[in-house]
Amino acid sequence: MQSGFEGWGRLLAYAVLGASYLFLMSVVALAQTSILNVSYDVSRELYKDINPAFIADWKAKTGETITVNQSHGGSSKQALSVAAGLDADVVTMNQAPDIDILVERGGYVAADWRKRLPHDATPYTTTTVFLVRKGNPKGIKDWDDLTRPGFQVILPNPKTSGNGRYTYLAAWGYALDRSKSETAARDFVAKLFANVPVLDGGGRGATTTFTQRDTGDVLVTFENEAIAIGSELGTDKFEIVYPSLSVEAAAPVAMVEKVVDKKGTRKAATAYLEFLFSPAAQEIIAGHAFRPRDEAVLRKFASRFPAIKTFSVVQAFGSWREVQAKHFADGAIYDQIIVKR
């Protein structure tokens, strides 16, 4: 009887101890800063590597422990979630319009976000390249080859995918550079899209169609995706062809003003974004097959990134707003081309 009572007493003591431990832990967790990076689909693995590096860096500099959470999905869908109230401290997207929308809808991001960080707030770029089957059986060298009749070109839907939009713009920019005529550029892009047998929703879907379904003569996609295909599926099956001219696809990043003010995370969020431009982060970026902005790092990885002549969207088309209105809005040039194919 006596020992039984003692047993209960001990159990109670353990319970109290356990409860206070949990309580303390949650207080610590609450006191700990955490930031959320809302990003696009393909950057999942990249930020999985960058975040621990930033956490260590932050700890070394401030002595504070910080948690970085990440959320990934289609770039435009992610932007809509943030506009609808997802508490993102920073957004890291693959095209500027997905950040501009957060300026326009509710002023989540400062209007001058491009000026707040180096390189128009784009820590890395990639470019649109061709992936062909090993040995390049169809002899594809440049954009002109893609418009040959009877040729099958695989690319993702420009309406739903940033990757597809850059491909369209790259082809347009190439044709415009050659002919100096808008009409000729339009005809060229129309011919190219007449050769498209499947429009997948996103870049990864197009990769599957080309590599797994054995459909198409050439896949037009981002360089980082093409390099990833090589390392995932073996370089003995596919090879990359660099066109003579392509588009520079820069990935923009920005801080979500409203959220960092509410959560009091402005300092950490700023440090996180600045960290992306540091040599350490740039090396990780290059390791994931994105072209780093840091010249020294780019030189170090030169064998991975052959020199290619590129133009930026702003150089060739003025601004994203103009691109959207002229090419991709409902009933604009892309719609006219694709309906007539």
């Binding site: 839907n157 498209v196 499947v198 429009l199 929703g201 719609d335 694709i338 309906v339 194919r341």
Partner: peptide
């Protein structure tokens, strides 16, 4: 996934 999603 199976449609091909070509406009028209």
């Amino acid at each position: 996934f199976i449609a091909g999603n070509l406009p028209m």
